[in-house]
């Protein structure tokens, strides 16, 4: 049990998907202007990541691996992810119209969030069991949400700052992200054994 807990911590903090692995930077930069939308995006992505990765794991284990169709992996996974994102979009549109408005184009773009595909592939590569897969992906998605919310909070404050003209907009956001990444370096080598 504690092993899973440490796995959760490790994936969320030590190997943070955004700050350490540098995956999922598109929504990280795109939907991080407000805490509310960042939180919504994080939750939507969490949903997609966990669902897509577990479906992908099953497809890999029950379909692709037995039939020796490893070369179709990328194609299949993208198909699954696209379908899950489509489904998520419908759910969000129905359940939270204002969040749907806020996320805008970035909601369907979860399909192209490399964190989703990346995590699905890593699970196969690392030969995770199904339970590990779910925890690993949930932890990573949690880390993604955490990074999104923290970053959005800072950008909210930044929007009130007197940033020099040359740095306004994306440049200062990247500087900020780099400093945040610097802070996350503190978790590197974290080992509870």
């Amino acid at each position: 049990m504690s092993e899973y807990f440490f796995l959760l911590i490790t994936t969320a903090l030590v190997n943070n998907v955004v700050m350490v692995k540098f995956l999922g930077l598109c929504p990280f930069m795109g939907v991080s202007k407000r805490i509310d939308s960042a939180l919504g995006m994080g939750l939507a992505t969490t949903f997609v990541i966990v669902l897509a990765a577990s479906v992908c794991w099953n497809i890999e284990h029950w379909l692709l691996a037995p039939l020796g169709l490893g070369y179709l992996r990328l194609l299949t996974f993208i198909l699954v992810i696209a379908a899950v994102v489509q489904f998520t979009e419908m759910v969000v549109h129905k359940m939270a119209p204002s969040l749907y408005q806020m996320l805008g184009i970035y909601l369907p773009l979860i399909a192209t969030n490399c964190a989703v595909l990346g995590l699905a592939l890593i699970n196969i590569q690392e030969k995770h069991s199904f339970v590990t897969t779910v925890i690993y992906d949930f932890g990573s998605a949690l880390g993604f949400t955490l990074a999104m919310v923290m970053f959005a909070g800072m950008r909210e404050r930044l929007s009130l700052a007197r940033v020099p003209a040359v740095f306004t907009g994306a440049p200062i956001a990247f500087v900020l992200a780099s400093l945040m990444s610097l802070a996350f370096m503190g978790f590197s080598g974290l080992n509870f054994k």
């Binding site: 497809i59 379909l63 692709l64 039939l67 169709l69 179709l72 194609l75 299949t76 198909l79 699954v80 379908a83 489509q86 489904f87 419908m90 759910v91």
Partner: peptide, 20 residues
């Protein structure tokens, strides 16, 4: 096998989305 499985997968996902 490849064609069948992909087609099946596509069909299942498509139906699922249609229902959703």
């Amino acid at each position: 096998a490849a064609v069948t499985s992909l087609t099946a997968l596509g069909a299942i996902l498509g139906c699922g989305l249609g229902v959703a």
